[in-house]
């Protein structure tokens, strides 16, 4: 645990990677939001009714906007969905390099040529894992719902606040199930980086062999890296609502953008921080091709 906390200092040695990944996400989001701005700004800018948006997330303005024009809204959602699929594909490309550097531990001085070579080599594999994980998530969601419903039955007579707590508890359990699955995919991706020559099936075997005994530890690592991000997120949301509500105007909006982007940046950092600790942990059990060269005695 303490080791994971300590690893955060190493996060600052990969600022380039951190910023690069953040800008990839922010850049693509910016591209996706421009049509939204162009479509809606014309309507909002000339109306008195939309003014309240400057100071609060006024639901009445949002509902007039989105639902008053039924056809544009679903089309835009599809557009964003396509963007998200493209992003997921790009990330699968980058994952090849990412897992290579973190499992090998050679991330403080990244050899970009090797990085991109690994990206290209492992692309197929990461796509395969992603497709597999989509099915796993769907299955788990159904199984998880079933499980959660059983808990729900036990809480038959709850009313008021206890129901909200119980709902939160159910969501937490669903979240943990999904998180465990995502950690399994990390194991598979790491195994692929460590054993590039092994076939898919064997890599999954290695991954699950490592996953089972290490799950608890990996969950803790994930939560340790996630909690600071979560705090930043809540504080950023709260601060931005306060700033926009009190200072308001363009300055308020600019501060809000900075806060929200800080939050998005922190999320990228969270994943890298987790990967540093996870890579170290994985390497300690499965060295694969990253086994230090042994000194052979010449007789």
């Amino acid at each position: 645990m303490i080791d994971t906390v300590k690893q955060i200092s190493r996060l600052f040695k990969i600022k380039n990677l951190w910023f690069g990944l953040f800008f990839l996400k922010a850049g693509l989001s910016l591209l996706l939001v421009i049509p939204f701005y162009l479509i809606n700004n014309a309507v909002l800018s000339s109306s008195l009714f939309s003014k309240s948006l400057v100071n609060s997330w006024d639901f009445s303005v949002l509902s007039e906007m989105f639902f008053g024009r039924g056809e544009i809204f679903p089309q835009y959602l599809i557009f964003v969905f396509v963007g998200a699929v493209i992003y997921a594909a790009i990330i699968q490309f980058i994952n090849g390099g990412l897992y290579y550097i973190f499992v090998s531990g050679q991330f403080e001085k990244i050899d970009w040529r090797t990085f991109y070579a690994e990206c290209g080599l492992r692309f197929n594999f990461h796509i395969k894992i992603t497709v597999m994980m989509i099915f796993v998530y769907i299955l788990l969601l159904f199984a998880g719902m079933f499980f959660v419903n059983i808990i729900g039955m036990a809480s038959g007579h709850l009313v008021g606040m206890p129901v909200v707590i119980m709902t939160g508890f159910k969501l937490l359990i669903l979240g943990l199930i999904i998180l465990a699955a995502s950690i399994f995919s990390d194991c598979a991706r790491a195994a692929a980086a460590a054993y590039p020559d092994k076939p898919f099936r064997e890599i999954l075997t290695i991954a699950s062999g490592y996953f089972k005994p290490s799950l608890k530890k990996l969950l803790i690592i994930y939560l340790i890296t996630y909690i600071p991000f979560f705090i930043i997120w809540i504080v950023a949301e709260w601060l931005s609502l306060t700033v926009v509500g009190s200072i308001g105007g363009l300055i308020g909006i600019m501060i809000e953008i900075v806060l929200l982007q800080t939050c998005s940046f922190a999320r990228s950092g969270q994943k890298l921080w987790y990967l540093i600790s996870f890579g170290k942990e994985f390497r300690s059990k499965n060295q694969g091709r990253f086994l230090p060269k042994q000194v052979t005695l010449e007789l």
Binding site: S29, V43, S50, K51, V80, G249, L250, I253
Partner: peptide
Amino acid sequence: RPGFRLSAGIMFLIESLLS
């Protein structure tokens, strides 16, 4: 400003979705 703020908010939502 309203359109700008709303778009900035939506952009953050999209970033969260991408994450």
